[in-house]
Amino acid sequence: MSEKVSLLTARIIDNRRVAPAHFLMTVRLPLSFATPFPGQFVMIRNDECDGPLLARPLSVYGFQRQQDHAVMDLLYRVVGQGTSLFSRMIPGEELCFFGPLGKGFSIPTGVKKVLLVAGGVGVAPLIFLLHKRLLPADGKGIMETIFYLGARTAELLTGLERLCGFCDLKICTDDGSRGYHGPVTGLLKHDIGGFDAGDTVIYACGPKPMVRAMGNLLQDAPFHCQVSLEERMACGLGACLGCAVAVRTGEGKTDYRRVCQDGPVFDLRDIVFASPAGP
């Protein structure tokens, strides 16, 4: 994992709407910025504005080094004040920016087949994983990769241009407007019997109900599954302890881990779902 965290001012190169309430922002970074691992995130904030106080965590969607600078793509959905403010920013404006943060995805040895399961804007870290780790330079995969992409409606599907032609793409929409009619976990449930848990690894990212459905779906199927979680954060650095997630620890106990530092990528089987009373 990348140890070096940069704190800097980043200039927006591009910021455009790619689907209703979904935006793709590209920022310019110095070459000194550490190359993020897929699954890692950055914290960004508009310092010029008296609006939201806290920085917002956004997972890395793309990262490329150029001759004298680097560029990062961030795909985000407008969910509240912070992201709404980002969506109104224009090229040339600057962001307070720090990262890369957190623990990304890892690829176990002996894997022959990869299933990527994305819900909504959860597509971002998985597309970065696909392009960074699963595709060799010539565009032909070493591992067989199947991408399950789900959204509420066809017009909310994002990232298609980075998926079509790069992997076997299976589209699902909640309203049936494109592809499989139902949640992405519904199609996966239908297909899962055709995969061998011995050589297949699953990576997932999406809204909480999807992650929970993944947990139920794989309860009795011994697939290795890494999932990137989302939680409200204040610092992103492991200090505020705001982004707690309940996990099973080695001794069969339950304890909280920090999504920002211990994650955001966790083993699906370690996550304890619905613990209203806490551990």
Partner: peptide
């Protein structure tokens, strides 16, 4: 101490609420 269950924080106007619970 393991602290309180999540969600533990929420941003509010010019501030934030936290209920980490002394983890």
């Amino acid at each position: 101490r393991s602290g309180n269950p999540p969600p533990r924080i929420m941003e509010t106007p010019s501030g934030m609420l936290n209920a980490v619970g002394l983890q």
